[in-house]
């Protein structure tokens, strides 16, 4: 997990250019996009995948990237469905979102009391999350990026050495999904300044289904699930992997939202 900041990244930090609406040339976000979720620079590093099967890389170099400070909210997602009718609940194709898509919303353009504006949007499919990200000029983080950012504790880059972080991590599993989710700003902030990677909702990653784990990976079953993993004592990582592997791209659940990422290199192109 040794940080590998590049010269460019250090420059970016010095300039404070870690947030703000910067779009790549290939994307054309709508003018009606809401004020962009502030983005935080996560320094690159080495990601050691949880699975160490014969087909898994032993480690992965992750370039520095930007990640949303918060999960995407109902308010932000409302702007998206407002501008993109085909992503409204009544109009979405079942191929891209199952029948519980935005189930907790009162109507197509009305999140309502079960989905307060500042709470994370849930009941969204991978397709929908991806479309939203594209619309705001971003993308979904990869598993490696998400896990790298989420491995930080409250006070350091490695949450494994942070008892308070570990305690909160497991405390979340001890609580059922609330009927109305709290605001994203109420969630814990980690070492990088990113809120709610744990303890609020699960989050989609771009390659959720590419970690060589299909829903029937025999390695997931019972005690065999403990073979070929980095750390058999990391139950939280098991659970994230199990959740991702249980999903199809059109699935939606009551505790699954997302946030967006962006390459740090795209920023460099826009620098003078």
């Amino acid at each position: 997990m040794k940080p590998v900041p590049t010269f460019l990244l250090q420059g970016l930090l010095a300039l404070g250019v870690v947030a703000g609406p910067v779009f790549s040339a290939s994307e054309s976000p709508s003018a009606s996009a809401p004020r962009s979720n502030k983005m935080i620079l996560v320094p690159g590093g080495i990601y050691v995948p949880f699975s160490l099967g014969p087909r898994d890389a032993r480690q992965e170099q992750v370039a520095a990237f930007l990640l949303d400070e918060y999960s995407v909210t109902n308010e932000e997602f409302l702007a998206f469905v407002g501008a993109n009718p085909k992503w409204r609940r009544s109009q979405v194709s079942q191929l891209f979102a199952d029948s519980s898509y935005l189930k907790n919303w009162a109507g197509d353009l009305e999140p309502g009391p079960s989905a307060p504006p500042a709470s994370p949007v849930v009941h969204v499919s991978w397709f929908a999350a991806r479309a939203y990200a594209r619309w705001v000029g971003k993308r979904l983080p990869t598993t490696a990026e998400w896990e790298l950012a989420a491995s930080a504790g409250y006070g350091s880059r490695d949450g494994n050495n942070d008892p308070a972080f570990k305690r909160d991590l497991y405390a979340w599993f001890a609580r059922p999904v609330p009927a109305v989710l709290p605001a994203v700003t109420t969630s814990q902030v980690n070492y990088y300044g990113i809120h709610g990677l744990h303890g609020l909702v699960w989050e989609w990653v771009d390659d959720f289904n590419s970690a060589l784990i299909s829903s029937s990976d025999p390695n997931l079953l019972c005690a065999a699930g403990a073979t070929d993993v980095r750390d058999t004592g990391d139950y939280a990582a098991f659970m994230r992997r199990a959740l991702r592997s249980s999903l199809q791209a059109n699935n939606t659940t009551s505790a699954l939202g997302f946030r967006c990422a962006r390459d740090a290199q795209i920023l460099t192109a826009s620098l003078p």
């Binding site: 019972c222 592997s245 249980s246 659940t253 009551s254």
Partner: peptide
């Protein structure tokens, strides 16, 4: 049978 049913019964929330 494989997994005593587990391979065939792996089910996401709401499924």
């Amino acid at each position: 049978g494989s997994g005593g049913g587990a391979t065939s019964a792996f089910t996401a929330p709401g499924h």
